[in-house]
């Protein structure tokens, strides 16, 4: 990747290592989300880890490097879409079973990846919502300048 801001961020060592670790952190977040109904973790914890992978990148390479590449509008929209999808999941439950946010899918077999009804799906929505939301919080706080301008 072309880096237009080579002097920002941390040292070369950190940047080089970051190039490897950031994907590992991201994948670990996704793993926790997908296995959320089987092991500790879930949408929120995984979402935080996904957001932290972006934060990691921002810290290592400086904020301008990331701001150039991140589409803030898309992130905002994704967050809103995830929130709407969570509410819609609840509405489907209301329509199918008569209870808001009730499980409307089969629970499947215990200990298998595709089980627990709608929980994996909700985990993924929550991951998107939390990941985008948390990173945007960091992004907006980082983009403040000490003086107005």
């Amino acid at each position: 990747m072309q880096n237009n801001f080579p002097n920002e961020g941390m040292s070369v060592i950190v940047k080089t290592i970051t190039r490897f670790t950031v994907w590992l952190i991201f994948l670990y977040g996704l793993y926790i989300v997908i296995h959320g109904h089987l092991s500790p973790g879930g949408g929120f914890a995984g979402g935080v880890i996904v957001a932290l992978s972006f934060v990691h990148l921002t810290l290592a390479y400086g904020k301008n490097f990331v701001m150039e590449r991140v589409n803030k509008f898309a992130m905002n929209s994704l967050e809103a879409i995830a929130a709407i999808l969570i509410v819609l999941t609840g509405l489907v439950g209301l329509y199918v079973t008569g209870y808001f946010l009730a499980n409307f899918m089969g629970v499947g077999k215990l200990y298998t990846l595709l089980s627990a009804g709608y929980i994996p799906m909700l985990n993924i929505f929550i991951c998107v919502k939390v990941g985008m939301g948390l990173y945007l919080v960091f992004y907006y706080l980082a983009s403040f300048k000490p003086k107005e301008g």
Binding site: N76, A80, I81, I84
Partner: peptide, 23 residues
């Protein structure tokens, strides 16, 4: 049935506004 409307209608409206009304 009727009660959850009081919560999800404004909640949905809030996120729809974020999604569609930015432009």
């Amino acid at each position: 049935m009727i009660l959850s409307q009081f919560i999800f209608v404004p909640l949905l409206a809030a996120f729809l506004i974020v999604l569609f009304a930015r432009k």
